[in-house]
Simulated scan of single mutants.
Amino acid sequence: PKPTPKPPEPAPPPPAPEVYQVSELAYSVFGDHTEPEVAMGRSSWIWQRSNVSIASTRYAHGVTVHSRSSVTIELNRRCTRYEAVVGVDDMTLGLGAVRFSVFNGDGVRLWRSPVMEGGEPAVPVSVGISGQSSIRLVVEPEGPMGGVALADWAESRISCA
């Protein structure tokens, strides 16, 4: 009797995306350019921290910036999505108002928040970034007290292939 052929092996599932927390990214001066990195010469002050608080809700990690800021992240690999929740940090004591935006490396706005005031709940961000080499996280002050606000990109993360 002829042996029956063995069924083909099923294809392995695609690998799960690697997720990079922005609060843990290296700076481009010290990084090896194989993973996402904060571009030192093209970024404002950034505080990578834990226990970020927006409207009395705590988040495990995130980054805090001034109300007028721009943070460039070199992706250095194929990445698919940027996600965060954004708002005015509780350290501002309810003062200030800002607007958040995510831009691609060509300066095209991919996402923009409504004006966010101190004490208001965080707003989720989810932006497709396939095909991008970098992204820029921008915060702009709004209104007369906007300049006093500290702005949070809480749970800020990048998913890459």
Rank of each mutant, 00 (worst) to 15 (best):
T4E: 15
I54T: 07
I46R: 05
A16G: 09
E142R: 13
P141C: 13
S126P: 03
E9T: 15
W111S: 08
P17Q: 06
W45M: 13
S53W: 09
R58V: 11
L75Y: 04
S113T: 07
G105A: 15
M40F: 12
R58F: 14
E9Q: 14
M116N: 01
N51Q: 13
V85A: 09
V38F: 14
A149F: 00
E9R: 13
G119K: 08
G94K: 02
K6C: 10
E35V: 02
P124R: 06
A151I: 01
P114T: 12
A55Q: 02
Y59W: 13
G87T: 01
G41R: 01
A11P: 00
T4Q: 14
R77W: 05
P8I: 11
G118I: 04
R99W: 05
V138G: 02
M91T: 06
E155Y: 08
S101N: 05
S43I: 09
S113N: 06
E74H: 14
W47R: 15
G41L: 14
I129P: 01
G119N: 10
H33C: 10
E35F: 07
S130Q: 00
R112A: 15
S23E: 05
V127F: 02
V98Q: 03
W47E: 14
G96V: 04
G105F: 03
P7K: 15
Q48Y: 11
G87D: 03
V19G: 00
S43F: 13
M40C: 09
S133Q: 04
V138H: 05
G96P: 00
V148F: 06
G146T: 00
L75F: 05
L110N: 05
A122Y: 01
A60V: 06
S113D: 05
S133C: 03
Y82I: 09
G131L: 04
E142Y: 10
P144S: 14
V108I: 11
V102I: 09
Y20T: 08
Q132M: 12
D90R: 07
R58W: 11
G118Y: 04
A97D: 05
S23M: 09
S44F: 08
E117K: 14
T34F: 13
W111E: 06
Y27C: 10
I54S: 08
